[in-house]
Simulated assay, not measured.
Amino acid sequence: MDWVARTKLLIFPLCLAPLGFLIQAVLSNTLGPDPANTLTRDLGEWALIFLCAGLAITPLRTITGVNKLIRFRRMIGLFALLYALLHVIAYLAFMLGWQWLTLLEDLYKRPYIIVGAMAVVILVALGITSTKPMMRRLGKNWVKLHKLVYLAASLAVLHFLWLVKSDYTEPVVYGLTILSLLILRVPGFKKALRF
């Protein structure tokens, strides 16, 4: 077993740890006065954290020269998708009680939900096409499609920004992080990263 496989065995449970902590908080009733809102928010934030982590892999690979780091990107991206889907499920189950008419009203009244839904749809498309057979089938179009991850991340930040009511610090930090990771992919910056 090479170091990548061994490292994946360590990273996989670490990526599940936030979900484990949230489940434990639900079972012990320690999510605060509004547990549905806290759970939904925390799942969404973990999706954003994993999105940023996945986007950081390419610049990190450029800086370190360790090309095998790219083999972690799909796993991290799929965890971003997992937390995003759980965020949506928590919203539908605990905030709306599976009331589809209320969802339609929310889509009309709250544009941040439409923006968030667009981000999740993109992540689902990227997740479905992340397998090797799909890479072969899509060919060069696979790379173009997977560049939409930056759009998904930007939409997720906008969703977060519109959602908060007073303190914009966290969504701004995520936004600046994603902008920085996007800038680091510009050819001139990529050359500067190679020492």
Rank of each mutant, 00 (worst) to 15 (best):
62 T>Y: 04
81 L>N: 07
45 E>F: 00
129 T>S: 15
183 I>P: 05
97 G>V: 04
113 I>C: 01
32 G>D: 15
176 L>G: 10
126 L>N: 03
106 D>I: 02
31 L>T: 07
114 I>S: 14
39 L>P: 11
176 L>A: 14
83 Y>L: 09
173 V>G: 06
126 L>H: 09
109 K>M: 11
37 N>Q: 10
14 L>E: 12
165 K>G: 14
189 F>V: 13
168 Y>K: 13
47 A>I: 04
172 V>H: 13
137 R>W: 08
119 A>I: 00
183 I>S: 12
137 R>E: 02
184 L>R: 05
29 N>D: 15
159 H>E: 11
156 A>N: 08
122 I>T: 07
91 Y>V: 01
105 E>F: 02
73 R>M: 11
148 L>P: 04
77 G>V: 08
69 L>P: 06
50 F>R: 02
157 V>M: 06
94 F>R: 12
35 P>A: 04
91 Y>F: 13
156 A>K: 06
105 E>T: 04
107 L>Y: 09
192 A>C: 10
50 F>C: 10
94 F>P: 08
84 A>G: 13
114 I>N: 13
185 R>C: 13
64 T>D: 06
65 G>T: 02
131 T>W: 02
93 A>S: 15
122 I>H: 04
152 A>L: 05
79 F>D: 02
160 F>N: 08
29 N>T: 08
86 L>P: 06
20 G>V: 07
70 I>K: 14
9 L>W: 08
180 S>K: 03
26 V>K: 02
175 G>E: 10
185 R>Y: 12
105 E>Q: 11
99 Q>Y: 02
172 V>T: 14
125 A>H: 01
82 L>P: 03
79 F>M: 12
59 P>W: 05
159 H>W: 05
142 W>S: 11
16 L>M: 09
182 L>K: 02
92 L>W: 04
90 A>K: 04
38 T>Y: 11
72 F>R: 03
84 A>M: 09
95 M>I: 15
33 P>F: 06
171 P>L: 02
126 L>P: 13
107 L>S: 00
131 T>R: 11
46 W>S: 08
3 W>Q: 07
